[in-house]
Amino acid sequence: MLDLATRAWEAVTGLYLGLRVTILALVRPKNTVKYPIEKVNVSPRWHGLLALPIDPETGSDMCIICFQCERVCPDRCIHIEATGRAKDRVLTRFDIEMDKCCYCGLCVEVCPTEAIVFVPHYEASTFNRSNLLYDLDDLRRATPKEPIAHGVVRIGGR
């Protein structure tokens, strides 16, 4: 009899404690983001899509064709080709296979001129896989018009 009473008491208290948490959550502020209408502000360091920003002074890319990013890419998804010699070198091909890319940011890290950056965009789903091969035009177009803080904000000290 006593055992039954103890068990009943445990069931009642357990139910009460659990339901209290649930009911308290009702009156707390909501944390649901209604995605297509509202959007989360992604952090400036967010590893989103890659882009080649255009230098406002010269009107061309900042890439100096050093092939560092192509060499460091763990997925080997960056393909660069150039024509010309020495200072007259012109970028003819800069392809990033966005479907193969693992968004690790090593290319952004090694780039000496910050020619390749992360942009805080992530919506790029497509019906066709070939759309995910970003060539030079796509990458230039992916750069937002306003200046963005990219993945190399370094702050020293505390």
């Binding site: 952090s43 360091r45 993945g151 190399v152 370094r154």
Partner: peptide, 27 residues
């Protein structure tokens, strides 16, 4: 979100490097 502000990734943060970490904490 705390991770994203420091490392830039939610699940896969390539943050540690041989000999240190990539970036410092944001203010």
């Amino acid at each position: 979100d705390l991770f994203e502000q420091v490392t830039g990734g939610r699940l896969h943060h390539v943050y540690f490097r041989p000999g240190g970490v990539y970036e410092d904490l944001p203010p």
